[in-house]
Design a protein around this nucleic acid. Sequence first.
DNA 1: TAGGACATGTAATCAGTTACATGATTAA
DNA 2: TTAATCATGTAACTGATTACATGTCCTA
Lengths: 196, 196
Amino acid sequence: MPTPRLPQTAWAVLGLLSFPGERTGYELKKWADSSLRFFYGAPAFSQIYAELRRLEGLGYVTSRRSGPDEPRAKRAYAITGEGRAALAAWAAGTDAPGAVSLKHPVLLRVWLGHLAEPERLRALVAEHVAHTERELKGVREALARADGVEAWAHPQIALRWSERRLEAEGELARGMLADLAALGPGQPAPDPPTCG
Amino acid sequence: MPTPRLPQTAWAVLGLLSFPGERTGYELKKWADSSLRFFYGAPAFSQIYAELRRLEGLGYVTSRRSGPDEPRAKRAYAITGEGRAALAAWAAGTDAPGAVSLKHPVLLRVWLGHLAEPERLRALVAEHVAHTERELKGVREALARADGVEAWAHPQIALRWSERRLEAEGELARGMLADLAALGPGQPAPDPPTCG
DNA sequence: TAGGACATGTAATCAGTTACATGATTAA
DNA sequence: TTAATCATGTAACTGATTACATGTCCTA
């Protein structure tokens, strides 16, 4: 059977399980929140559980419930040989990976800057710089946790990339602040919303 | 009436119409493809048309069909005073703009590098560098088109940000290539997919 | 006169989120 | 004993894409 076409998120969830050990959906979500999210985003709980069910249907993971047979007992998942093979086939796929998708609400507002108060715009970007700083802290913590674990060499590279990318994000925002300032006070204030 | 809660994409489409002139859905799509996409992504044709209908329902845009009354005649849209006021209110909104969303398929594969051939991984990232170069060309063309038009000062800042961000993306990829190389040939080849 | 760009739209589907419900376990 | 965290799931919705249908206008 050829590898079925699955959304990237399904491969991401399966990927989370490709590292040694078995884990619950809840744990997967926590892990995604603390590292996957820096370069791919973290799916909601409900979607992780849905993906796990789909992957189990495909035989890519197996689950073991740890309460005897209460409904909704804790359920730990592990990847199967088949799952590992399918994931490797996907990773090796010679077709181009999908396009990078970037949706940047801050930029959207700057782009529309002609309708905003210059000061408000400046504050928005400044807040983004501060937020980026906080994100950077998060990525560094993840990096510290992954440090020295030989099985996590590649995740570490991804996190290092994320760290540098957040540093760049801060730089970029500061550059934009300068561009905004260079517009000068000659810039007209936005139309008063006295519509007609 | 308070500004209704709309998806960011609706504001983006309305934003496209906030610059002088009236345009068709088709033109909006072309414009989104050549500049909005670098920092926010470009919605599909079908979605642009859908958003335009919604915006017209809200009274934020008006349309003028240029064929007499054939169905599906060319239809040019323009923003209304109400639309401009709503957009300005949204832009000024003190609530935090949504989170930056980044989905990077290349990073997803690098993160899962333990299942791939090192050489394949290297090729993947190298291709990404080449792709980034082509994107950079696109952004520079857009920048050239916007050059000197006083009404496009803010779009220009957004494009300048995009240019720098693509330069950084290339840098980042090259850094990752180095990290990958530093893993050395001591790295074990992936499990042969002889599953069990 | 054929092909490509212009132009608009429908239908089907899907990916993904939010809100909600439920209950066990653990720590203050 | 109360709150937080752990843990799993359903239901409803919606944002957005893909594939398709249709037709005009312009140009090589």
